[in-house]
Design a protein around this nucleic acid. Sequence first.
RNA 1: GCUCAUAUAGCUCAGAGGUAGAGCACUUCCUUGGUAAGGAAGAGGUCGAGGGUUCAAGUCCCUCUAUGAGCUCCA
Length: 608
Amino acid sequence: MEALVEEIVIGIQKDGEIFDTQSANIQNISGNEILFDNSNDSLEIIRHSTAHLMAQAIKILYPDAKFFVGPVIEDGFYYDFRTSEKISDTDLKIIEKQMKALIKKKLPIEQYSISKKDVLEKFADDDLKQEVLKRIEDGNITIYKQGDFEDLCQGPHVPNTKLLHNFKLTRVAGAYLGGDESKEMLTRIYGTAFADKETLKEHLAMIEEAKKRDHRKLGGELGLFTFDDEIGAGLPIWLPNGARLRSKLEALLFTAHRKRGYQPVRAPEILKSEAWKTSGHYQNYGENMYFTTIDDIEYGIKPMNCLGHIKVYQNELRSYRDLPLKFFEYGVVHRHEKSGVMHGLFRVREFTQDDAHIFCTPDQIKENVIEVLGFVDDIMKSFGFEYNLEISTRPDKAIGDEKVWEIATQGLKDALDENGISYGIDEGGGAFYGPKIDIKITDALKRKWQCGTIQIDFNLPERFELEYTNENNEKSQPVMIHRAILGSFERFIGILIEHVGGEFPFFIAPTQVIVIPIADVHLDYAKELASELMMMEIDCEVSSKNESLNKRIRLAEKQRVPMILVVGDEEIANKTVALRDRRERKQYNLTKAEFYNIIKEKMNEVHF
RNA sequence: GCUCAUAUAGCUCAGAGGUAGAGCACUUCCUUGGUAAGGAAGAGGUCGAGGGUUCAAGUCCCUCUAUGAGCUCCA
């Protein structure tokens, strides 16, 4: 990073804690200096101060504004507040202008502390401050003051508003007080700030890049999928290009499962409600399920695939020699998500899971979890995804014995620990029937998405009284491992679209090759190439529209077809192709045989 | 589910109470081109749905549906 004009100390770092210069001076703290730059510690201070600066500006523009909290978040900050006036996106510019004016005033940011009792009195007429104070322990409370503006705050802050030039208010939204759905909704303004203009610009450019890659936009442009008001929210319609892409993924994954000893199975979409009562879904997940009643019998449309696979297990008497049994299905599930949460393919009401259930003995859990993690790794590598793992423990709304939960959770941790795999922990984030390992993908823009999941379940085997005969000819209860690797085709493909910006790798691109004959007389040769490619199971199109050559190349490029073949007199005479490789941004003249070899190699590169 | 916003041609968007518009896409014709937009003509809309205000509503009001930004919740 470019050196900043001058080195300014804005804080002290001691024992992992950040103190601003105000606190450090008062409390006489010494430690590592935090310089005014784009380090995490420094940005924490800058952003926190920018949030306060925004509050100060809001207070000037909207004198009745009352403020709740204004924390620093991953890539910026926000402040929650209440005013009688409605604030819209266009008002952000006005607030920014006011902030700039305050920066010009070069206001010192000062700190003092008073007792909680005094603060309660000081802000007696401010109900939001009272809410904040409820959440703060007794004792002395610090107040920061800049100009006429005062806010109770732990800090840290920069010493002067003049340091806060490089910020941007990004959006205005609503947020519940304290994140509690039952409480009032406050106005929230998000913004971001950096130490210098260039880094701010880069950050804003990245947001723009993310918008360009938005899978909802690309999904339309590339003819992958659509939604329709008349069909319903959260119910994706796969268009030909999207369906081709998806079917390739399904085919590759099918083989990958077979190689690993999984058996394909298939069970109904609707199951009697009695079955969901046995499983506990009716009681615990019913609010998210769709139901239908026919001939006085209520059926539940499946939100998960477990029950079908349990019935497959129960179809025969099982021996310990059979275990582990692995059943998999591309299971279509329906979940009634709340109306406000649908988001392109990332969050839908009907989706297909690459779901499998492994039935095994308790002491086979570890090896099977490890094997699934290997499967995950193979797939993620093939698509160039980085990912990390997170263990989710028992939630409040859980069924089953607490001790059993403990054993299962420990089993997951052991599997990871013994193989030296690092992971995070999400306390209370488990499914209602068992703890899980979530697989979170990091995409090209460093965003994280939850996809695959591995869940241990002692509960359903108990409820359905599953059994196998052990080596002593006694009945034992198997364990179920629920697992999905992509999670759902919908979400995974949505993420893949954004990860590659619509430029799918050759092996999965909906249209892999497009042949462009220069003139009508070259059409037969183009068709001959296309049919040969189709025989090789390559999705191929001939661009025979009555448009100029340039136009047809442009269209193929815009559709992000990986390989464009231009053929004319020369190619016909020599039995060659002129290949324009969009992924490598290069052009080649190749014989047909050479080209087909390249294609075969590319297809052979993929294996998971 | 909640808050705010949005909904006009297949797509992207103009149209601030008085006869529905543009570009791209589509159809037809001309053009037969060597690596990112050749030319001309044509067709296409109960202005998301329903109700209300008004002499008159795409435009103002209400309800619903869908979408977007968030909150809360999840693959």
